[in-house]
Amino acid sequence: MTVGTAPPRLARTARTAKRKGPARRRLMPHLVGWGFVAPATLVVVGLALFPAIWALWLSLHDSDLISSGEFVGLDNYREMVHDPALRDAAWHTVVYTVLYVPGSVLIGLPLAVALNQRIRGIGIYRTCVFVPYVTSAAAVGILSNFVLDPEFGIVNGGVKALGLSRAGFLQDPDQALYTLVAVSLWWSVGLPVVVYLAALQDVPRELQEAALVDGANPWQAFRNVTLPQLRPATTFVVIWQMITALQLFDLVYTTTKGQPLDSTSVIVYYLYEQAFKQFNAGYGAAVAYALFVVTLVVSALMLRRSAGGAAGARS
């Protein structure tokens, strides 16, 4: 083996030694490799890892966005525990997440199953469901203020025509958060649908048909054959939508700005206000870090649970 490969390698080295020198020749593939990956890697790492460390440093200082401030140790983190506005924002975020994530699965999955059938015009149906996803938060905000206006909005027009009393929607402190959940689901359920559609196309049709031939009804075939195969897709959807929900900001900014009566103030909105309106940059960084850690822990728990569940199903 060594004997077999030695001569050509020697010959090559000898040839290139005259031109470039063996060291340079040996370095070449590494330089080419880094030449390919370095620009993108530098941008990504430079704009993420480096600021992430900086944010940690900031969270230990009482920076006001102008000066870096004094070192205060864990004071910012301690302050979070005693901040009633943050506690409210965290609670609103939890309520929103707890409704939005299951909603994404419970609406996304049946829709994807329906859109996976081979019928005429299925492309048009698919497009309709996904189209809101490409609309911006600003556009969705203006649109929902228009459609859901308590007095002039078309939805209340319909509600009144049915003889029911008008709803306040985004202007009622008791309804605003739930209205935001509904608008968000309309806006973004296209993503879970696409993920489930992709997963459904990998479930072999023969498998389902075999179950039907064996006497299972369509629901049993779906429940016992298709659904277990969709587990990884569900894990992805749940984690992705949870991260999205915990980071809710744009829609709040373009509709309620945290109002009425702070009933839609969520964590990221609160942290934005703290850092860039009240100039409590150190405190804002601490809140961001806490949110990051919570997100990581919850994601890890979900991944572990789903892996454990899959192993359990297999055994």
Binding site: P29, H30, L31, V32, G33, W34, V37, A40, T41, V44, V45, L47, A48, L49, F50, P51, A52, W54, A55, L58, L65, I243, Q247, F249, V268, L271, A275, A281, G284, A285, A288, Y289, L291, F292, T295, L296
Partner: peptide
């Protein structure tokens, strides 16, 4: 090439970091 794994790992780690954490720095 040398360090390709480390480079890719560094890139993938950043996926976990949310924008909210990065915007102040």
């Amino acid at each position: 090439f040398a360090g390709s794994r480390a480079g890719f790992l560094a890139v993938m780690v950043t996926i976990m970091i949310p924008v909210q954490l990065l915007m102040i720095p």
